[in-house]
Amino acid sequence: MSRRAMLWCAAGLLVAILYPLLFGGPSLIARSNYAINVAFLILFAAFLGQSWNIAGGYAGQTSFGHVVFFGTGAYVSTILHVSHGWNPWLAWPVAIASGGLVGAIIGVLSFRAGLRGSYFALITLAFAEVFRIVANSIPQTRGGLGILIKADQRPENFQFRDPMWFYYLALVLCVIGLAIAWWLTRSRFGARLAAIRENEDAAMALGIDVFREKVRVLALSGAMCAAGGTVYAQKYLYLDPSIAFGVEKSVEMLLVSMIGGAGTIFGPLIGSGVLHLVGEITRDLGNVVPGIKNAQPLALIVYGLILVVIVAYLPDGLTGLLRRRR
């Protein structure tokens, strides 16, 4: 990293740390949980997008069903906590490991069968559907009723009265995600993934164990995504199969990463910021223009169009656009 880039990162981090002190916490300007929650959502979606980006961007393994890891993490920690009385902080690492395990298993099965490109994307979608239907049908998850986590707002219980703390948690996750992405740009592992992404057959010819590297990266990506699942469950204290394994979240992770720039360090963060900005604008539009009752679909229409344009003209997403202008 250049000195200038380092300075920018430090400045960005400082702003992110000070942000709640301006809008939340001991109020200096105006206390606004809304501002904190929007910022949380941006960072949280950026982290999940980063987990997609690790496999989909850096290793070129496009997934349509990444939510399978998110839901696994969320359900594992929640079931351990609610049904077996575990402390959620202790359940968290187990959830993360489960996400990694599910990633490894899906990876072993799919890559052993030689699935690539679109076929891999579609099979991940099918796996997520299988998980959703199972979660809908078995007693451990209470099926479609969903699981309520009892509100007990103490930090040792992984629940916080002040939303500021969830914001900081998302910030920490986001920074870890950025660090992992940065490490992929520097390490031999990352270089091998790039080789696989650019040309799998050539990578194999160079002596890279393509199968092993792809399974590894999917396990890493799955573990990250599962970490987010637990945080989601603890923040909203409720989980059901369509939240945990719904296709919308898979698409959101993909969109965030693709729009910001797949295979770039800051892509998911930029993508997440842009998507939430679009979401806020369309919501305001819904308030201002009288005829519009439900603004949510409008935002998604815009996302879909952006995705088409990005894939067609800007393979590096908005990050690529910024870079090119420089």
Binding site: T62, A121, N294, L300, L305, L307, V311
Partner: peptide, 27 residues
């Protein structure tokens, strides 16, 4: 216009179109 590039790209483009269609219907 985009059909003959990488296989995943056209998948993503048709995904984008399906997002647009689904949400236009919802709207």
């Amino acid at each position: 216009r985009f059909a003959h590039g990488k296989d995943e790209n056209i998948l993503l483009i048709t995904l984008g179109l399906s997002i647009v269609a689904d949400n236009a219907a919802l709207f």
